[in-house]
Design a protein around this nucleic acid. Structure first.
Lengths: 238, 238
DNA sequence: AGCGTCTTTGACGCAACTCTGACGCCCCCG
DNA sequence: CGGGGGCGTCAGAGTTGCGTCAAAGACGCT
């Protein structure tokens, strides 16, 4: 009826399935893959958080009954650094459970046993509303007098030539550019680029900011666009 | 447990309730108003679409069983021009109904009879995820005739130029500005900026208030905006 | 298996920020 | 009228944070 991404052919939607019951995981994986989703699976909370950090899923399906940690803790762990839609599965019908999960940051709550059709529809709904912007074309191009960043094409142009960025460099640049003019805290940068457990490794930031400045600033040692706010974070200015 | 808007006191969340059963509408309206939502109600689809257009609700609660038109048509009518979250209520448990409604653009689907707690939690979830991107980025700006404070971007502008503040200076300014016009006790300032164990080191305050005044006041020795209340605390005035 | 690229880690010098103490002022109170 | 506590100001000392470089480790590709 509808492609996972909602019609626009682009990179496939990535789903992270978290459940400790193998048969449920299998059923989900089969159904999702058949519909051209890209699927990762985890059977406990720790693995889940790790996978979420490294794979950056577009939507998370989470069973609350995990062996190693409370499902709500997983929600909080995710919400600490990402707004990825979270669809909760649970065998518990109690109203309190639902309220707790939803208020912790879940986007939807489905009780088992569930219909696969319904689950997939809810998944589509969750992904759909998370999509970038609905109404109008947002400007995916950001220009400075020294270089141009094309967020959609994932390209940076300088003096007519494309600048080669490594994945990490790009990711960092993307977070900064998406917050043009705003200060982005070191913690937020680290967590968005490297994952939730990297909130304090500020040396990574120093290295990669230097890298970005070397590649994009006219005078890397006196940056005009990638501004350091000592003790707080970094800011991208046009 | 949580204010409708998620903590920041601003304009109340507006809900549009669409249902033809008076007792359900009444129950919803009472519960919503008690939680400080602003509520509009419609008992048929035509009125609903009209109200949605004129009142611009932040979230819609829609019963699928309407007298004048199919509920799914209402969803489509809304989705034609707005991305407002739509929470569907329905007596039908059939999977097809849910899939159809969700794929038409609904954000959530709750079957009757429903628990009020759960419904409210789902409503909060729907509003929450729509907030930051939906209505538009409202930067929290505070202006005086001498300078401008942008709390979101963590920026202070004076005479067209950005003022450089250290982390401590920012933190202090932030607490004061968030309490504009109100007196903030020394103890509270110290504990919020330096931590719970620093309730008495008022000399810190003196040093950093001086710093702030030097950077922001036109005449630092005769402050107009950062007012000392001797023996009590400090107050920020526009 | 070998190679190239990307990421991570450590060490160093330098700059920025925080803390601290001394001093003088003003206002309140005795 | 004199004393004292609270406040503002200043500048130095100590600490932390930042930029830079280089090399080792991890990863993927051929």
């Amino acid at each position: 009826m509808m492609s996972p991404t909602g019609g626009t052919p682009q990179t496939p939607t990535r789903v992270l399935v978290i459940d400790d019951e193998p048969q449920i995981v299998r059923a989900l994986v089969i159904n999702l893959k058949a519909r051209k989703y890209e699927v990762d699976a985890a059977h406990d909370g720790a693995t889940a958080l790790e996978l979420a950090a490294t794979r950056h899923p577009d939507v998370v399906v989470l069973d609350l009954g995990l062996p190693d940690m409370d499902g709500v803790e997983v929600i909080r762990g995710l919400r600490g650094w990402t707004r990825v839609p979270i669809l909760v599965l649970s065998a518990r019908h109690s109203s309190d459970e639902k309220v707790e999960a939803l208020d912790a940051g879940a986007d939807d709550y489905v009780t088992k046993p569930f219909g696969m059709d319904e689950l997939l529809a809810r998944l589509r709904a969750a992904v759909r509303r998370a999509e970038p912007t609905g109404g109008g074309e947002d400007d995916v191009m950001v220009e400075t007098e020294g270089f141009t960043v094309d967020l959609a094409a994932k390209k940076v142009n300088r003096d007519g030539k494309d600048v080669r960025l490594t994945p990490t460099e790009w990711h960092l640049l993307e977070v900064l550019v998406r917050n043009t003019g705003r200060l982005v805290s070191q913690r937020q940068l680290l967590q968005e680029v490297w994952g939730p457990s990297y909130g304090t490794e500020t040396n990574y930031l120093r290295v990669y900011m230097a890298q970005l400045r070397r590649k994009l600033e006219a005078d890397p040692s006196h940056p005009r666009h990638f501004v350091t706010e000592p003790g707080m974070g970094y800011r991208f200015e046009k």
